[in-house]
Design a protein around this nucleic acid. Structure first.
Lengths: 346, 346
DNA sequence: TTGTAAAGTGTGTTCGAGCACATTTTGTTT
DNA sequence: AAACAAAATGTGCTCGAACACACTTTACAA
């Protein structure tokens, strides 16, 4: 009933040889109309699924995939990606796939370009890339295109015909999700959006989140709220935050657009900590600690690990099974609090 | 560098034939200590990964897997499961796997047993089962064991040595998650836990959720709250709910332990709807509508689709690649509100 | 009608693991 | 030293798809 048909079966049913069936299936070589009809007749009746196992056995090329991402030493945000890559490596290690990780310095465009050059020199079959720098990304794309190297991206979107796929989140929506949670905890007063980041590379990210956040409150059109934006850099966090708190005594909530919510949480004076709602990003250890203490209310999970895993898995499945590469994979915006956090940490 | 070694390579390196290598790898037949040493020496140096593709080509048995679950006609809760099965079918259709779905009536123990009998008569290689009825499940387990049919379960846990795996959620924790969200929206007053279900089959489910919910508030030990439990059945929902609302004017929040939150939402009078926080389960269409209208605040996603998908995928990968079947897979408790719901609906 | 190129078709090998079976080596007994 | 069983080892086939190559048939010009 659910028997798997082979090329041999088709050949027998059509009264031809497997070679002819093969030519029909792959539109190669010459086949007489008579044979073509007979084979098509058979193919119409049965549901032929080529045995991928056998196909792959033959095509035993080793596929070479490079993953390019910022060195987690510079920013722990990228740490979960390593796990995602490891997961993919583990899952596919028995197949002819070779996955290689390359780090670049997220503060340096030059490092980004150089790492890409190293990878290009290796001439892999595909690349999964965190395209942090827009202009530089477009430049290296030209080279990837010339060498017919498939390029997938994750984390942030860059428009280019060369890029086959993007895996990531809708940042605008993620700002809205943060806002919806904030409006649940805080009913009136002042809300601050804080951008903390050492470099400018995340500027677009942070802006999109801010836009989404503000958009939500604009829609609500509640006059009881005022929203301010504060930009902090490593060197001035403490002083600037203190000044801000003194100036804004009616502060009820803070939305931190990066994974640095823990820094704010640990700088807030004890008595304010309980009163001010904090919402941030990413399940890094320090954030989880504050989440459990109650000094951070919600975290939004950006699931970098899964982003990279899916980016790699998509490529492997494309090579191994000829699956199509989806143009975009949008990951859900997971809402995390102290109660469900444990399920997402890995 | 990352070259894939084959048995032939090992044989050559050890100076023996592939037959001998094969015997060492599988501890079968007789091998001289000399040969064993030589081969082990080689195996120590290289990282041999048998080519799963080739292995499977030989073992081209068609594996037969049956999925048993309640008919979604009786309860739309089970509808997403169909998608999960379809996903698995799609993913594995090119392999020698035959996945068959069998429905039973969730209100009838007899139907449950009968469906199991039908499946047993087919003698599949494995079964994925929603073990709604405890006693009956244990009974059919005996038969599955005798026939060496692998049994995986999902949705609810039943303790049995025969059952190899369970995929589901931690219901106690899920109650706690609901409570944590409730305590965020409601700061004092009365909270109701409502169980709505036509049958008793979900009793354990609902109880676990209630326990978790109460447990959270007990820990908080906040005297401003009172929590009541209300059990409703299809026939008496409207009248009983109305009476309850009249009796309890200070009602601030309702936790519905089943997917029927929409029923409560649509029965609440307009003026109360805005004031009373509703938290329920499952992303079924009617719940989503209320979520978007604002009459339901949060839904907890039980991800039935993924439960079934993982249950099936685990089995297929076990048969095809010899992967171990994990004893339990606990899915995360996804918090859903109007802003992030769209990402989870499929 | 034969020659010959083109068109059409079939055969046989490959991939790596697994396993049956054939063959060789070893060890023991007479 | 021969005989022979037991132990050890090697050979060769299988799985299904892919493809090279050899072979057969057709078509048409000489």
């Amino acid at each position: 009933m659910d028997k798997k048909y082979t090329i041999k079966d088709i050949a027998k049913l059509a009264g031809v040889s497997k070679g002819t069936v093969d030519r029909v299936l792959h539109n190669r070589g010459k086949v007489s109309p008579t044979a073509l009809d007979k084979i098509n007749e058979v193919l119409k009746v049965i549901d032929y699924q080529p045995n991928l196992i056998a196909r792959n056995l033959k095509n035993n090329k080793v596929y070479h995939i490079c993953v390019l991402l910022p060195d987690p030493e510079f920013d722990p945000y990228w740490l979960p990606c390593i796990n995602g890559i490891d997961d993919a490596k583990k899952e596919f290690k028995a197949y002819n796939v070779n996955i290689e990780t390359h780090f670049f310095n997220p503060e340096s465009k030059k490092s980004f370009v150089n790492t890409n050059q190293t990878v290009i020199a290796q001439a892999p079959d595909a690349v999964l890339l965190a395209p942090l720098f827009h202009k530089e990304t477009l430049e290296v794309m030209k080279q990837y295109e010339e060498l017919n190297i498939i390029v997938n991206t994750f984390n942030n979107q860059v428009e280019s015909d060369v890029i086959k796929s993007f895996v990531g989140q809708d940042l605008h929506k993620s700002g809205r999700v943060a806002a919806s949670l904030m409006s649940l905890i805080v009913s009136e007063g002042q809300i601050a959006i804080i951008h903390i980041d050492e470099s400018v590379k995340n500027a677009v990210h942070m802006q999109e989140k801010e836009k989404g956040f503000r958009n939500y409150f604009e829609e609500k059109n509640n006059p009881n709220f005022t929203i301010n934006t504060l930009k902090l850099k490593f060197s001035n966090i403490e002083a600037k935050l203190e000044a801000f708190l003194i100036e804004n005594t009616n502060l009820k909530g803070i939305f931190i657009t990066t994974s640095k919510a823990y820094q704010i949480a640990s700088l807030l004076p004890e008595e304010k900590c309980k009163k001010i709602a904090l919402i941030g990003y990413d399940l890094i250890h320090k954030n989880i600690t504050h989440l459990n203490k109650g000094s951070i209310h919600f975290l939004i999970h950006q699931n970098q690990k899964r982003q990279v895993y899916l980016g790699v898995a998509t490529l492997v499945e494309h090579f191994l099974y000829g699956k199509e590469i989806p143009q975009t994979i949008v990951l859900p915006i997971d809402i995390i609090n102290a109660e469900n956090a444990s399920f997402y940490i890995s």
